[in-house]
Design a protein around this nucleic acid. Sequence first.
DNA 1: CACTTGACCTGTCCGC
DNA 2: TGCGGACAGGTCAAGT
Length: 324
Amino acid sequence: MPELPEVETIKRGLSELLPGRVIADVWHDWQKSFPNAPADVARFMVNAKIESVRRRAKVLIIELSSGYSLVIHLKMTGQLVFVNKNEQKLENSNKKLVNNINSQFLFSNSSREARFGGGHPTDSLINNLPDKSTRVVIDFQDDSKLFFNDQRKFGWMRLLPTIEVPQIDFMKKMGPEPLEDDFTVNKFINNILRRRQSAIKAVLLDQTVLAGVGNIYADESLWAAKIHPAIPAGQIPRTKLIKLYSELRRILTMAITKGGSTDRNYVDAKGKKGSYLTFAQVFRKENQPCPRCGTIIEKIRVAGRGTHICPKCQKMIYTRDIRS
DNA sequence: CACTTGACCTGTCCGC
DNA sequence: TGCGGACAGGTCAAGT
């Protein structure tokens, strides 16, 4: 769910809210989410000040004044929700007013629904925390709180010495970020072709090739570049890869300016369904017409993932390595 | 080594 | 209405 644009959006939000705040207490109930020893938490988190919030691919890094950092991966259902006590009081006394300001202190899939979708049931999220998905609560000295919620328990949070963060395994293996200035089209093509026999979609999802792309943006960029997701990477003409490079960067950049997307469908208070993938062209659009040619979009399975294609725009036409 | 599949979880949705 | 099962997707371990 959270891919690069979503994590970037969360990072930008937390960057405005957390730095300068001092941790008063930390509660956590779940070893997998937050396996650090209570003694370490007490020693390196309590009384520490938040210095900065950074992002590497889909990973958030909250740097503390103690020389330690919180490294956070939200995986599919993780949320980071910041709640300011004053706002909470306001919520209790004047619900309408708070609905309008929810977005400034909620950073989660639900908050994006709130922001882009208008009123809906999760407007009341702020009243319900902690809930049963809450794994970690960080209390600040000014009585504001940061909640880490994760329904499916795939996400995690680790407290590590800041200087060791780049050394941990999955950080070292991570490939380049698609939006970095020095990530050139040639680098992109060379990295793609490192996995010549794999389906192009599997390559885009491989974080050692390219860090930050997930299922939504893989489908969207392959549709934009008119490439079938199951084509072996090595069989794609160079001109198509150049197109894929520019479309991937364009779509990721656009998604960030829109504050990310969410694939959560929900039912609002009136039982009405809605989707908040406002700029998706194919993702979760199966059985709907392709925005480009009108052909009905199909959902198939590629690289073990649900995959959305226009069967006319994205044909399996390559049968040999035409680069050589 | 290259590449694919299944496990990790739980809430939701679909069909019977 | 309830119930079983498929499905969702990021990442890693285990498999071919």
